[in-house]
Every structure is written in C-alpha cells, then in structure tokens.
Simulated assay, not measured.
Amino acid sequence: MKHLESVAEFNELKDNGKTIFMFSADWCGDCKFIEPVMPEIEAEHDDFTFSHVDRDQFIDLCADLAIFGIPSFLAFEDGEEIGRFVSKDRKTKEEINDFIDAL
C-alpha cells in the first residue's frame, strides 16, 4: 500500500478513479492488527487504489474529513465520497471486505 505524501496527492487520488484511503497511526494497536491482511484485501479489490494516510502526519486533513477514530477507511470515486467505515473499533478482514463489497 502506498503511503500518502501530501494533501495535493490526496486530492489527486480522490479525484481520479476509485481510491480507498486507510487512516491509521504507528502507535495504533488496532491498526497494527489489520496490517498483515491488507495486502490480501488489496489483491481482492484490485479495481481500487489503496493509500495509507498517517493520522499524525495529516491531522488537519483528518479533522476536515471527520476521521476521529482509527483505523478508518474512506472511499472515493472520481472526487465523490462513495463510502466510509469510520470508527475507533478494531476491524476484521471480513468487515473491511464487506465494506468494500457494498460500495
């Protein structure tokens, strides 16, 4: 999964194609819990581009997007938000796949 480098890159990704942003942080235990399965999730949903957003590096962007719990997922298609799986709760591979399948 690519790591987001700038807000400009965020805007470029969200405005072009189908992108899922995963918001997390190095210190987040629940984020670490799902990291091992993320490559499998990405492979199962190759119609999306996946991008990791470090909550601490992009705290203002998170506030603007109302991302107050991590890990969280935000999906866009050509600039339009098409779904969000946002909470502070631990997420399973099945829950993440269900979220993506429902988009």
Score class of each variant (00 low, 15 high):
49 T>G: 11
82 I>L: 03
62 C>N: 04
4 L>D: 01
53 V>F: 07
68 F>T: 14
26 D>G: 08
93 K>P: 01
55 R>W: 06
4 L>P: 09
91 K>T: 03
74 L>P: 01
42 E>D: 12
7 V>M: 15
3 H>T: 08
81 E>K: 15
37 V>S: 05
95 E>Q: 14
101 D>A: 15
44 E>F: 12
100 I>W: 07
81 E>D: 08
30 D>A: 02
59 I>Y: 08
70 I>L: 11
28 C>Q: 00
87 S>P: 03
10 F>I: 06
3 H>L: 11
60 D>L: 10
55 R>E: 13
69 G>I: 06
7 V>N: 15
20 I>C: 09
53 V>R: 15
3 H>K: 12
34 I>R: 02
93 K>V: 07
42 E>M: 06
65 L>C: 10
96 I>R: 01
62 C>G: 11
79 G>C: 12
27 W>K: 05
19 T>F: 08
40 E>W: 09
87 S>V: 13
71 P>E: 01
81 E>V: 13
48 F>D: 01
64 D>P: 00
77 E>M: 08
35 E>I: 02
15 D>I: 02
45 H>A: 12
64 D>I: 06
49 T>S: 15
84 R>M: 12
83 G>D: 00
72 S>A: 11
28 C>A: 03
102 A>N: 14
16 N>I: 04
49 T>E: 15
103 L>I: 05
